[in-house]
Design a protein around this nucleic acid. Structure first.
Lengths: 221, 221
DNA sequence: GTATGACCTTGACTTATGTCAAAAAACCGG
DNA sequence: CCGGTTTTTTGACATAAGTCAAGGTCATAC
């Protein structure tokens, strides 16, 4: 339970107390953790596995809002605000999580300034992420969003020009706000133009300058 | 300075101290308050007027992220997180604001739990707003977003079937992630079909059921 | 090893929305 | 009330991206 950002700087006694409050839960691949509109009785801290948080359109199109992984929080905003969950959450793989009941959390936030500070930092980070997402959806075309995603992957690792996608292409489409067919076509065009090379989930970035230009709308594929 | 949500429940002595910290600033219509990428030395509390926070695409298209009005915070996330402002902010009309320097704010947040709680509530609310925005941009078409906007306006007031737009149609287009031409055409189609009646900035909602169906994709105009 | 299903690709087609240009309407300061 | 700017509307057109349908690829389980 160590090293969870939310509990950074938490005094030892409160840390101890958490042991009696947090409940371990497990979800199998594809399992629903919560659905949009359901009551937020608490939130989860993901300890193993990954969870996709997503919205569905009337026609069944999926938009992934974010993917929650190791030591990250799931549903914390709703639990804090006392609102129903605004989106669906499914385990993308076998997932272990700690459940933190809303009431206990509220008490802890009020008692421990460090938790409040960590929570604010978390909220601020996610707000930034959503700001970028809105910008991308509204002002960039799909190739631009894709290029931005690859360069982001590239920077996150050391980046040896080869990035490994950690999700399927279908899920990537949903993350970028498009559909698999469109993504497939754009990957092909980028390959044909020598900007990158696709081999399964492995992408070789052959021309990063071109990718940057695509993001900035200076180069149309 | 009373009744600012951020200072709700703030002890009187801290409230007093603020008098010496907050600085009044004034902006004329159209004036830039801050630009994307510039250092966030603090944030603003809007006391009069309105400010649009927006991003610009490479081609100059504008996406309004939100409009900040009376007693709301501008740039607080950046100031808190210590990041540059992620978007532009322009006064939409003559605007008066209180400037809160970052350092003083950080000290206050650490000292006063009520400020931290209010700040978290603020962040949570905005996260919800952005979530809906992403959903709309990605999963709804422009008519759906427009219908949702009108019904939102309708609910915010008592709603006598007539809503008053408080921004220009061009700015509404930018808020909905589209352009004035498209908005104009959709308004015409909706008028022709008897769903609403446009008269300047005054919209008469003649068929709310149809608007709801448009939002849910059950009725295509 | 092969069968089963998930995932991905491709082609032909449709459509929502953007672009460009021009006219019309609304607004504003003097 | 006028002249000029800004906003809004309209039309003709371009295009990015979605839909539908079919086929291909890949992996895993049996």
């Amino acid at each position: 339970m160590m090293n969870i950002p939310l509990f950074l700087n938490l005094p030892a006694d409160s840390m101890k107390m958490l042991q009696g409050i947090l409940m371990e839960k497990e979800f199998s691949k594809g399992e629903t953790i919560f659905s949009e509109g359901s009551e937020a009785a608490g939130f989860y801290i993901i300890m193993k596995g990954r969870v996709k948080v997503y919205k569905l359109s009337a026609e069944g199109k999926e938009q992934i809002l974010h993917i929650v992984g190791h030591r990250e929080l799931l549903g914390a905003v709703s639990a804090f605000a006392g609102n129903p969950y605004p989106a669906h959450a499914d385990a993308m793989e076998k997932t272990k999580a700690l459940f933190f009941p809303r009431n206990d959390f509220m008490a802890l936030v009020r008692k421990e300034p460090s938790v409040a500070m960590n929570m604010m930092a978390n909220l601020a980070m996610r707000l930034q992420h959503f700001t970028r997402m809105i910008e991308d959806l509204s002002l960039k075309e799909v190739p631009g969003r894709l290029a931005a995603y690859f360069l982001y992957l590239c920077e996150r690792k050391g980046c040896s020009d080869i990035v490994e996608m950690d999700i399927s292409k279908g899920q990537l489409a949903s993350l970028l706000g498009t559909i698999p067919e469109t993504l497939s076509r754009i990957l092909r065009r980028l390959s044909e133009q020598g900007v990158l090379e696709v081999s399964g989930r492995s992408i070789r970035l052959k021309n990063k300058k071109a990718l940057k230009d695509i993001i900035n709308g200076e180069y149309k594929i």
